[in-house]
Design a protein around this nucleic acid. Structure first.
Length: 269
DNA sequence: ATGACGATCCCAGATCGA
C-alpha cells in the first residue's frame, strides 16, 4: 500500500435513529470504510443519501425489517459485494465486499453474530443453539478467505473471548457472550483461518478492553462493566501494516448513544 | 449478576438485545 487505509466497525442499534451520530463520527474520524451492524431497517429505508453527502457514496447493504441488518459504507468503490445467509433463516447478518487499495484487493467481511439469548445451553435454548451453529458456518466460509488474501473480518461477534474482554471473568463464565464453549470456539475458528485479533495486537491481553456497556447500568462509566464484543480481525497480509487502533469509548457518552462504540483501525503502506 | 434501559412494530405491550 502506498496510502494509509482506515476501517471502522460500529453496532449502531438503529441507523435511522442514530443517523446524526454516524454523520458526526464520519466527520470526525473519516475512515475509508465503516461497517455498521444492527441497522434495523430494510434496504430502501437506509439513509444512503445522507451518507453519500458526507463522502460515502458506496454502500453494501444487507438489511431487514426491525431486526439485525448490516451495511458497509465506503469512500472507495467496491469491486464486488456478496451477502451470505446463515443457518437458512434469511437473517441479514453478513455482507462482504472487496475494495482495491493501492493496487491490492482487500476483502472485508462485516458480521453480526447472533446474541444467543439468556441460557447458555443449546438443548433448552434455541437461540444459543443458533449462535453455535452460526459459528460453525462462519468457520467454513472464513477459512476460504482468511489466510492468504488481504482480508479483514469485522463486526459485532457478540463474544468476548479473553479474560480481560469482560469486567469480571469469574462472574461472567456462565453468562452468554463469555462462556467457554463460545470463547473457545471463536478463538479456534479465528486461528484455524489464520486471522489475527488486531485489537489485541495493539492492546495487550493483560489490559481490560471493552466496546460495549449495557444500557441498564445507572452510570456506565462509573460501574464500567463492559465487554469487548466488537472485533477487527486481519489476515497475515494486513497484520504487519497495522499502525493504530482506536476504541472510541467517548461515543458511549454521546447523546442517545448506541450501547456499542466504534473501533477504528489504521493501516500504513 | 440480572436487568434499573432502549428499539421495533398495524400504537402498546410483547419481544429482542447481551
Amino acid at each position: 500500500m502506498t496510502q494509509p487505509f482506515t476501517i471502522a466497525t460500529w453496532n449502531i442499534n438503529s441507523v435511522r435513529l442514530r443517523r446524526g451520530l454516524v454523520e458526526r463520527f464520519l466527520a470526525e474520524h473519516a475512515p475509508d470504510i465503516l461497517c455498521l451492524q444492527e441497522i434495523k431497517c430494510q434496504d430502501d429505508q437506509f439513509p444512503a443519501k445522507a451518507f453519500a453527502r458526507a463522502g460515502y457514496e458506496h454502500v453494501a447493504l444487507h438489511g431487514q425489517k426491525a431486526y439485525h441488518g448490516v451495511a458497509t459504507l465506503s469512500k472507495i468503490p467496491f469491486s464486488s459485494v456478496e451477502r451470505r445467509d446463515f443457518c437458512g433463516l434469511g437473517d441479514a447478518r453478513h455482507v462482504e465486499c472487496t475494495v482495491d487499495v493501492n493496487g491490492s484487493r482487500i476483502r472485508v467481511h462485516n458480521f453480526y453474530v447472533p446474541a444467543g439469548g439468556d441460557e447458555p445451553d443449546p438443548a433448552i435454548n434455541p437461540k444459543f443453539a443458533h449462535k453455535l451453529k452460526f459459528l460453525d458456518e462462519m468457520r467454513a466460509i472464513t477459512t476460504e478467505t482468511g489466510a492468504h488474501d488481504a482480508a479483514l473480518l469485522v463486526g459485532d461477534l457478540n463474544i468476548a473471548p479473553l479474560e480481560n474482554d469482560v469486567w469480571s471473568h469469574r462472574q461472567l463464565l456462565k453468562v452468554v457472550s463469555h462462556t467457554p464453549v463460545e470463547t473457545e470456539t471463536l478463538e479456534e475458528l479465528r486461528r484455524e483461518a489464520g486471522w489475527a485479533d488486531l485489537m489485541r495486537h495493539h492492546v495487550p491481553g493483560d489490559q481490560k478492553l471493552f466496546t460495549w456497556w449495557s444500557y441498564r447500568a445507572r452510570d456506565w462509566a462509573a460501574s464500567n462493566r463492559g465487554r469487548r464484543l466488537d472485533h477487527i480481525w486481519g489476515s497475515e497480509a494486513l497484520r504487519g501494516a497495522l499502525t493504530s487502533m482506536n476504541v472510541l469509548t467517548e461515543a458511549r457518552g454521546w447523546e442517545k448513544p448506541s450501547d456499542h462504540v466504534p473501533v477504528v483501525a489504521r493501516f500504513a503502506p
